[in-house]
Each structure stands twice: as C-alpha cells, then as structure tokens.
C-alpha cells in the first residue's frame, strides 16, 4: 500500500499543482535543484527498482542533452569558454542549459509520480461536482477503451478464421486492419447505444443528480493540506517579493550571496514531504508485519 495513494484526491491534486507550478515556472537554481532531488526520491519510493533506474537514466541523459545543445542556440553571456564557427560557447549558456534540463527532467518525473498516484477515478471524482457530464464521459471512456481493445482482438481472430485477414504484404495487412477497425466501429456504436438505453432506464437525465464517492476526509488529510499549503504560501510570498527572480544572462547571479532562505527552506520541506511519508509508512509496515 502506497501511503500517498490513500490521501484524499483534492489534497493530492493541490500538492501536485503547487509543486508542478513552482517546478515549471520558478527558474531559481536552488529551487530547481531541490525539485530535481525531491522528484527522484519520490519516484524511487513509488516505482519498482528496474523502472526507476531506466527512468533515471533517461532523465539524466535528457538533462545532459539540453545542457549541451543550449549553447549552440544561445550565445549570450560574458564568459566565453571556446568558439565554434566564430560563435562563442559561454559558461552562462551552459549553466542555463543545465538549469532548463534539470527543470524539464524534474517536471517529467513529477508528472510520472502524479500519474501513479492520481489515477483516473480520482480525477473523475474531482471533476464530478463541477463537471458531472464530463466526468461521466470520462468514466465511460475509461470503461470503453479496454473493452474495445479486447473486442478488436476478437474481431481480427474471427476474420482470420474466415480467411479474410491477410497477413502477407503491407497493403494486405493495412487493409485487414482497416476492415477490423471498421467492424469494431459498428460494434462499439451499437454497443454504446444499448448502454445509453440502460442509463436512461436507470434514470440518467433526471434533474438534481448527485455525486457519490468512497473517499473519506481524514485527519491526516487536513495535516497534509495545511503543511503543504503553508509551505506553498511561503514560496508564493517569496516569489511575489521578487526574491526568486534570477538572471542567467549576461552574467549568472551569484545566488549564494543572497540566498532565498525562506522560499528555499519552504520548498525543500514541500518536495521532501511525500518521500518522507512513503519511507515512514514502509518502515511502519515492516514493524507491523513483524508482529503478525
């Protein structure tokens, strides 16, 4: 059981919105580094070892690629390292590339974590109240996609057993796929119309529809929300006061001379909170298991 997955969808959504917005739009190197490390830690806690390492490798390569390509486009900066075709490759451009690469990789990692924790049914619940119809369409789609995929397999098997499914040349195969999909389309349309009838039979379309869900708001949800809300607020205040403004060009600012203490500390707490909870939970679990 993942500790974070048990939190209320609204809390999770708020948390990831706060982290993602900061990670995407604050370009201060200190916060970027924090975000990167936090994302890696959480991802490690959530994913299997194999998945983790392959994704980590990808992230690092991505960050490196961005670092190395940025100087080719951008020749700003005052500290030239060397020249290519008469254009300077500057230290600032490399540094900015590293920052952006770091940001991109960390945002991708955060998104992966978000996807693992924030499953389709949570999204459905969250948009259920303001957008009941969209939520219903979303729910139907989540049900239809695996069903249609399964049916496509059945159709192509049935067609194959009639000798109507060519598997030779590319054009034959394309034609077979086209036929299968055309049949699938008929199948799903007639299926969906029956589903619509069943919905009407159970009173869909009456006025004053309500929304049912199984999520319960616990005390831990309040604590999580207050904690992440406070830290996000501090980051926001710091942002509004301009402490997080940072210039990479022409010369990179020396951030250690005027460190954004408040925002840095708050964001650090924010990004490490979930990995801390995950680790705590797994230790607790080990303890409980030892008592069984």
């Amino acid at each position: 059981m993942k500790a974070l997955a048990g939190y209320h969808p609204a809390v999770l959504f708020f948390y990831f919105a706060a982290v993602l917005l900061t990670a995407m739009f604050v370009r201060h190197p200190v916060l970027l580094a924090e975000s990167f490390v936090g994302a890696i830690l959480l991802f490690a806690a959530l994913e299997s070892r194999k998945q983790f390492f392959s994704q980590l490798l990808f992230s690092v390569l991505l960050a490196l690629a961005v670092t190395l390509t940025n100087p080719l486009f951008s020749h700003n900066g005052v500290t030239p390292l060397f020249f290519i075709n008469g254009n300077p490759v500057t230290l600032e451009a490399v540094f900015y590339g590293a920052a952006i690469g770091c940001m991109t990789a960390s945002v991708l990692l955060w998104c992966r974590c978000f996807q693992i924790l924030f499953t389709g049914d949570k999204l459905m619940y969250l948009i259920g109240r303001p957008l009941p119809r969209v939520s219903l369409v979303f729910s139907l789609t989540l049900r239809f996609v695996p069903l249609f995929l399964q049916k496509r397999r059945e159709i192509s098997q049935a067609q194959k057993a009639m000798g109507l499914f060519g598997s030779g040349s590319i054009s034959e195969r394309a034609h077979s796929l086209f036929r299968t999909c055309s049949a699938l389309f008929d199948w799903s349309l007639s299926y969906a119309m029956e589903t619509a009838a069943a919905m009407k039979a159970r009173g869909y379309g009456l006025a004053h529809r309500t929304n049912f869900h199984l999520y319960v708001w616990r005390r831990s949800d309040s604590i999580f929300l207050i904690f992440s809300g406070m830290t996000a607020l501090f980051v926001a205040i710091s942002f509004a006061r301009g402490e997080l403004r940072y210039a990479y060009y022409p010369a990179a600012q020396r951030f250690w001379e005027q460190p954004p203490l408040l925002a840095g500390a708050a964001f650090l707490l924010l990004v490490f909170l979930p990995s801390f909870l995950e680790i705590k939970e797994s230790l607790k679990w080990k303890y409980y298991v030892s008592k069984i």
């Binding site: 957008l131 969209v134 239809f144 496509r152 796929l177 999909c181 919905m199």
Partner: peptide, 30 residues
C-alpha cells in the same frame, strides 16, 4: 467543458462522445 454542462444534452450524445473519444485513444494505441 462548462458549455457541455450548461446546454441540453441527450444521453445518446454523451455516450457517442465517449465512443469517439475511445476511438481516438484506440487510434493512438493501435
């Protein structure tokens, strides 16, 4: 999205929307 909520919509229309959405997803998967 909000426009869909406000206007009159039939059940069949919503289900069709879901089918077409699923078809785009299937297109991407296949």
């Amino acid at each position: 999205f909000f426009r869909l909520e406000k206007r009159q919509a039939f059940v069949g229309e919503l289900v069709l929307l879901a089918v077409m959405t699923s078809m785009t997803v299937l297109g991407r998967v296949l």
